[in-house]
Amino acid sequence: MNDMRILERDVDTNTIKFAGRDVHVYYGETEAIKGIDVDIEDKTVTAFIGPSGCGKSTFLRCLNRMNDTIDVCRVTGKITLDGEDIYDRKVDPVQLRAKVGMVFQKPNPFPKSIYDNIAYGPRIHGLAKTKADLDDIVEQSLRRGAIWDEVKDRLDAPGTGLSGGQQQRLCIARAIATAPEVLLMDEPCSALDPIATAQVEELIDELRTNYSVVIVTHSMQQAARVSQKTAFFHLGDLVEFGPTNEIFTNPKDPRTESYITGRIG
């Protein structure tokens, strides 16, 4: 793995955004993540792949402490964001989540207007001083979410009235609106049709210029299309982590190989 990272550094010189060291996650007695070390880079799309139930979502949710909302869930080890331990007692998960936005598997817009969907985050974080500022944030976010042209005439319409793909891009725009540094996406395209998927994938590729994106995906084609780095999870272990093209063309671990060639999962 190490020499791979050296190779990668030659290609582009990205700083490490998230670093996980010996991360274990337990749901009650069962261990869902069994000691993971991982470095996630800035301005890179990192894909988590692996068979169902291997802990991709669990690990992703550790990165913005969404696991805190699950009573039985316990995280040990160390995860740092820009060198700061996010599980430190002094860290308020609310602040962390403003920095680390999340997009969920099922599009989940608030049952409010499109405008309010985007404006909600900036409002509660006090990002806009005036209405004009807020309007501006909403427009910028919707543009970045590649949905501005479709909704600019009906910002007052309910967000839940959009099509599935539009809803998901709205959710991405909503996540962008709080000016995060990292975007976590848990199978963002699994509820979308191929055209909407293509639009979202294109969007993810654009987002890479500004954010570090971590995407969980079921589809290896998608991982291959959008990501620069890929992590293969299997039964709670991080089996292999490296540049996407290497993982797909030249997997080191037999488990990775059999997953990619369709023998497990």
């Binding site: 909302t69 609310v94 989540r97 403003a98 997009v103 608030f110 909600y120 509660i124 909503r174 996540a175």
Partner: peptide, 17 residues
């Protein structure tokens, strides 16, 4: 739906918000 709670928590709303 819990997805609405997730959405709100995800953009950094506190539990009370």
């Amino acid at each position: 739906p819990p997805s609405i709670k997730d959405a709100a928590l995800g953009v950094g709303a506190s539990k009370m918000q």
